[in-house]
Amino acid sequence: MTLLYGHRGAKGEAPENTLASFQHCLAQGVNRCELDLHLSRDHELMVIHDTTLKRTTSRRGKVSQHDAAELVTFDARHGGPGWPQPCPIPRLEELFEQCPFEHWQLEVKSASKVRAARTVQAIEKLVARHGLLDKVIVTSSSREVLRALERHAPALSRGLVAEYAWLDPLKVARHYGCEMLVLNWTLCTPERLQKAQKQGLHVSVWTVNEVALMRRLADFGVDSLITDFPGLAKRTLSS
Protein backbone atom coordinates (compact mmCIF):
# COMPACT_ATOMS: atom_id res chain seq x y z
CA MET A 1 0.00 0.00 0.00
CA THR A 2 1.35 3.41 -0.98
CA LEU A 3 1.43 5.91 1.91
CA LEU A 4 0.75 9.62 1.43
CA TYR A 5 2.63 12.68 2.71
CA GLY A 6 1.20 16.19 2.43
CA HIS A 7 3.85 18.42 0.81
CA ARG A 8 4.49 21.43 3.09
CA GLY A 9 1.10 20.49 4.55
CA ALA A 10 -1.31 20.84 1.62
CA LYS A 11 0.62 23.30 -0.53
CA GLY A 12 -1.85 23.22 -3.43
CA GLU A 13 -4.84 24.06 -1.23
CA ALA A 14 -3.55 26.20 1.66
CA PRO A 15 -0.56 28.50 2.30
CA GLU A 16 2.50 26.21 2.42
CA ASN A 17 4.28 25.34 5.66
CA THR A 18 1.67 27.04 7.87
CA LEU A 19 -0.45 25.61 10.67
CA ALA A 20 -3.53 26.06 8.43
CA SER A 21 -1.87 23.96 5.73
CA PHE A 22 -0.99 21.10 8.08
CA GLN A 23 -4.44 21.14 9.67
CA HIS A 24 -5.97 21.07 6.17
CA CYS A 25 -3.81 18.04 5.33
CA LEU A 26 -5.05 16.21 8.44
CA ALA A 27 -8.65 17.16 7.62
CA GLN A 28 -8.24 15.36 4.26
CA GLY A 29 -7.44 12.17 6.17
CA VAL A 30 -3.70 12.27 5.36
CA ASN A 31 -1.72 11.84 8.56
CA ARG A 32 1.85 12.12 7.27
CA CYS A 33 3.55 15.34 6.24
CA GLU A 34 6.69 16.80 4.74
CA LEU A 35 8.02 20.22 5.74
CA ASP A 36 11.12 22.44 5.57
CA LEU A 37 13.17 23.91 8.38
CA HIS A 38 15.44 26.89 8.93
CA LEU A 39 16.90 28.28 12.15
CA SER A 40 15.90 31.73 13.35
CA ARG A 41 18.55 34.17 14.56
CA ASP A 42 18.01 32.90 18.12
CA HIS A 43 18.28 29.26 16.93
CA GLU A 44 14.63 28.21 16.97
CA LEU A 45 13.40 25.79 14.32
CA MET A 46 11.08 27.64 11.96
CA VAL A 47 8.92 25.97 9.31
CA ILE A 48 9.62 27.74 6.01
CA HIS A 49 11.01 26.53 2.68
CA ASP A 50 13.25 29.38 1.51
CA THR A 51 16.22 30.93 3.28
CA THR A 52 14.64 34.31 2.48
CA LEU A 53 11.24 35.71 3.43
CA LYS A 54 10.21 37.36 0.17
CA ARG A 55 8.30 34.62 -1.66
CA THR A 56 5.91 33.61 1.12
CA THR A 57 5.70 36.76 3.27
CA SER A 58 6.77 39.54 0.83
CA ARG A 59 9.17 40.76 3.55
CA ARG A 60 12.84 41.45 2.91
CA GLY A 61 15.80 39.63 4.35
CA LYS A 62 16.64 36.14 5.53
CA VAL A 63 14.98 33.90 8.11
CA SER A 64 18.31 33.80 9.97
CA GLN A 65 18.28 37.60 10.41
CA HIS A 66 15.16 37.55 12.62
CA ASP A 67 14.34 36.12 16.05
CA ALA A 68 11.54 33.55 16.28
CA ALA A 69 9.28 35.94 18.20
CA GLU A 70 9.38 38.29 15.21
CA LEU A 71 9.06 35.57 12.53
CA VAL A 72 5.81 34.26 14.04
CA THR A 73 4.23 37.67 13.40
CA PHE A 74 4.88 37.51 9.63
CA ASP A 75 1.94 36.43 7.45
CA ALA A 76 3.05 33.60 5.12
CA ARG A 77 0.01 33.66 2.79
CA HIS A 78 1.78 35.58 0.03
CA GLY A 79 1.85 33.88 -3.36
CA GLY A 80 -0.08 30.79 -2.22
CA PRO A 81 -3.71 29.72 -2.65
CA GLY A 82 -6.17 32.32 -1.28
CA TRP A 83 -6.81 31.98 2.45
CA PRO A 84 -9.16 34.07 4.61
CA GLN A 85 -7.08 34.38 7.81
CA PRO A 86 -3.45 35.43 8.32
CA CYS A 87 -1.07 32.43 8.42
CA PRO A 88 2.05 33.10 10.50
CA ILE A 89 5.34 31.27 9.98
CA PRO A 90 5.13 28.52 12.62
CA ARG A 91 7.73 27.18 14.99
CA LEU A 92 8.23 23.42 14.56
CA GLU A 93 7.33 23.03 18.23
CA GLU A 94 3.89 24.53 17.61
CA LEU A 95 3.18 21.91 14.93
CA PHE A 96 4.39 19.10 17.19
CA GLU A 97 1.96 20.34 19.85
CA GLN A 98 -1.05 20.85 17.57
CA CYS A 99 -0.83 18.37 14.69
CA PRO A 100 -1.06 14.65 15.50
CA PHE A 101 0.75 13.32 12.41
CA GLU A 102 1.83 9.71 12.56
CA HIS A 103 5.01 10.49 10.62
CA TRP A 104 7.01 13.60 9.71
CA GLN A 105 9.59 14.18 6.98
CA LEU A 106 11.65 17.18 8.10
CA GLU A 107 13.77 18.54 5.27
CA VAL A 108 16.87 20.60 5.98
CA LYS A 109 18.34 22.51 3.04
CA SER A 110 22.08 22.85 2.48
CA ALA A 111 23.91 24.67 5.24
CA SER A 112 27.42 25.48 6.40
CA LYS A 113 29.11 22.94 8.65
CA VAL A 114 28.35 24.97 11.79
CA ARG A 115 24.75 25.71 10.82
CA ALA A 116 24.07 22.09 9.80
CA ALA A 117 25.35 20.85 13.17
CA ARG A 118 23.33 23.44 15.07
CA THR A 119 20.16 22.62 13.12
CA VAL A 120 20.28 18.84 13.51
CA GLN A 121 21.11 19.12 17.23
CA ALA A 122 18.11 21.43 17.70
CA ILE A 123 15.89 18.93 15.85
CA GLU A 124 17.11 15.97 17.90
CA LYS A 125 16.50 17.86 21.15
CA LEU A 126 12.97 18.94 20.20
CA VAL A 127 11.99 15.55 18.76
CA ALA A 128 13.23 13.76 21.89
CA ARG A 129 11.41 16.23 24.16
CA HIS A 130 8.14 15.48 22.37
CA GLY A 131 8.76 11.71 22.32
CA LEU A 132 8.65 11.58 18.51
CA LEU A 133 11.93 9.83 17.68
CA ASP A 134 10.14 6.91 16.01
CA LYS A 135 7.82 9.26 14.06
CA VAL A 136 10.39 11.58 12.47
CA ILE A 137 12.93 11.33 9.68
CA VAL A 138 15.27 14.18 8.75
CA THR A 139 15.89 14.44 5.01
CA SER A 140 18.33 16.47 2.95
CA SER A 141 20.09 16.67 -0.39
CA SER A 142 23.09 18.21 1.38
CA ARG A 143 26.04 16.00 2.27
CA GLU A 144 26.97 18.54 4.95
CA VAL A 145 23.58 17.99 6.63
CA LEU A 146 23.73 14.19 6.26
CA ARG A 147 27.23 14.19 7.75
CA ALA A 148 26.03 16.37 10.63
CA LEU A 149 23.17 13.93 11.28
CA GLU A 150 25.61 11.00 11.47
CA ARG A 151 27.98 12.91 13.70
CA HIS A 152 25.79 15.07 15.94
CA ALA A 153 22.31 13.49 15.96
CA PRO A 154 22.75 9.75 15.42
CA ALA A 155 19.42 8.94 17.12
CA LEU A 156 17.51 10.56 14.23
CA SER A 157 16.56 8.55 11.14
CA ARG A 158 17.85 10.15 7.95
CA GLY A 159 16.88 10.25 4.30
CA LEU A 160 18.51 11.45 1.08
CA VAL A 161 16.60 13.86 -1.15
CA ALA A 162 17.62 13.17 -4.76
CA GLU A 163 16.63 15.53 -7.55
CA TYR A 164 19.19 14.68 -10.23
CA ALA A 165 20.70 11.40 -11.41
CA TRP A 166 24.26 12.60 -11.96
CA LEU A 167 25.33 10.89 -8.74
CA ASP A 168 24.06 7.41 -8.00
CA PRO A 169 21.47 8.22 -5.30
CA LEU A 170 21.50 4.64 -3.96
CA LYS A 171 25.24 4.78 -3.40
CA VAL A 172 25.00 8.15 -1.62
CA ALA A 173 22.09 6.93 0.55
CA ARG A 174 24.05 3.85 1.58
CA HIS A 175 27.16 5.91 2.32
CA TYR A 176 25.27 8.11 4.81
CA GLY A 177 23.28 5.30 6.44
CA CYS A 178 19.93 6.55 5.13
CA GLU A 179 16.67 4.69 5.66
CA MET A 180 14.70 6.68 3.12
CA LEU A 181 15.30 7.79 -0.46
CA VAL A 182 13.21 10.84 -1.38
CA LEU A 183 13.19 10.79 -5.18
CA ASN A 184 12.08 13.39 -7.68
CA TRP A 185 9.36 11.54 -9.62
CA THR A 186 11.33 11.89 -12.87
CA LEU A 187 14.04 9.66 -11.35
CA CYS A 188 11.64 6.95 -10.23
CA THR A 189 12.04 4.13 -12.73
CA PRO A 190 10.83 0.62 -11.80
CA GLU A 191 14.49 -0.55 -11.90
CA ARG A 192 15.77 2.14 -9.51
CA LEU A 193 12.78 1.61 -7.23
CA GLN A 194 13.33 -2.16 -6.97
CA LYS A 195 17.05 -1.72 -6.44
CA ALA A 196 16.45 0.81 -3.64
CA GLN A 197 13.83 -1.36 -1.93
CA LYS A 198 16.16 -4.38 -2.12
CA GLN A 199 18.69 -2.19 -0.32
CA GLY A 200 16.08 -1.73 2.45
CA LEU A 201 15.23 1.87 1.58
CA HIS A 202 11.76 3.36 1.89
CA VAL A 203 11.23 5.19 -1.41
CA SER A 204 9.21 8.40 -1.15
CA VAL A 205 8.49 10.24 -4.41
CA TRP A 206 7.81 13.98 -4.93
CA THR A 207 5.98 16.11 -5.98
CA VAL A 208 3.13 14.01 -7.36
CA ASN A 209 0.04 16.05 -8.26
CA GLU A 210 -1.50 14.44 -11.37
CA VAL A 211 -3.98 11.59 -10.98
CA ALA A 212 -2.43 9.46 -13.75
CA LEU A 213 1.04 9.85 -12.21
CA MET A 214 -0.25 8.96 -8.73
CA ARG A 215 -1.75 5.76 -10.13
CA ARG A 216 1.33 4.90 -12.18
CA LEU A 217 3.74 5.31 -9.26
CA ALA A 218 1.44 3.38 -6.92
CA ASP A 219 1.37 0.58 -9.53
CA PHE A 220 5.18 0.64 -9.62
CA GLY A 221 5.04 -0.05 -5.87
CA VAL A 222 6.54 3.14 -4.41
CA ASP A 223 6.39 3.21 -0.62
CA SER A 224 5.00 6.74 -0.40
CA LEU A 225 4.01 9.78 -2.47
CA ILE A 226 4.51 13.43 -1.48
CA THR A 227 1.73 15.61 -2.89
CA ASP A 228 0.46 19.21 -2.85
CA PHE A 229 -3.10 17.80 -3.00
CA PRO A 230 -3.46 15.24 -0.19
CA GLY A 231 -7.26 15.06 -0.54
CA LEU A 232 -7.08 14.31 -4.27
CA ALA A 233 -4.31 11.73 -3.73
CA LYS A 234 -6.30 10.03 -0.97
CA ARG A 235 -9.39 9.76 -3.18
CA THR A 236 -7.33 8.59 -6.17
CA LEU A 237 -5.52 5.81 -4.33
CA SER A 238 -8.66 4.71 -2.48
CA SER A 239 -10.68 4.26 -5.67
Rank of each mutant, 00 (worst) to 15 (best):
L3C: 08
L4R: 01
L4C: 07
Y5I: 14
Y5G: 05
G6I: 05
R8D: 08
G12C: 07
G12F: 02
G12P: 06
E16H: 05
N17K: 05
N17M: 11
N17G: 04
L19H: 03
H24K: 12
C25R: 04
R32G: 03
L35Q: 01
L37Y: 04
L39Q: 06
S40P: 02
S40C: 10
R41Y: 10
H43I: 07
M46Y: 02
M46P: 01
V47P: 01
V47T: 04
I48M: 14
H49Q: 11
T52E: 08
R55T: 11
R55L: 14
T57A: 03
R59D: 13
R59V: 12
G61E: 10
V63R: 00
H66P: 02
D67H: 13
L71K: 00
L71Y: 00
L71P: 00
V72P: 01
A76T: 02
H78K: 13
P81K: 01
P81W: 05
G82I: 09
G82F: 11
P84T: 12
P88G: 09
P90M: 14
E97A: 15
C99K: 03
P100K: 05
F101I: 09
L106P: 00
S110L: 12
S110N: 15
A111G: 06
A111D: 06
A117W: 09
A122E: 10
E124L: 12
E124M: 11
K125G: 07
H130P: 07
D134H: 14
D134T: 14
K135G: 08
I137P: 02
S141L: 15
R147A: 14
R147G: 14
A153T: 06
L160D: 05
L160N: 03
A162H: 00
Y164K: 15
A165W: 10
D168P: 11
M180N: 13
L181I: 06
V182H: 14
L183N: 00
N184Q: 12
E191H: 12
Q194K: 14
A196P: 07
A196C: 10
A196N: 07
A196K: 04
Q197K: 08
K198Q: 14
L201K: 01
H202R: 11
H202M: 10
V203Y: 00
V203C: 05
V205C: 01
N209L: 06
N209W: 02
N209M: 05
E210I: 07
V211R: 11
V211H: 02
L213M: 15
L213K: 09
L213V: 11
L213I: 13
L217H: 00
D219G: 10
D219P: 03
F220Y: 15
D223N: 13
L225D: 00
I226S: 00
I226P: 00
T227D: 02
T227C: 03
T227Q: 02
D228A: 11
F229T: 03
P230A: 08
T236G: 03
L237S: 02
S239V: 11
S239L: 13
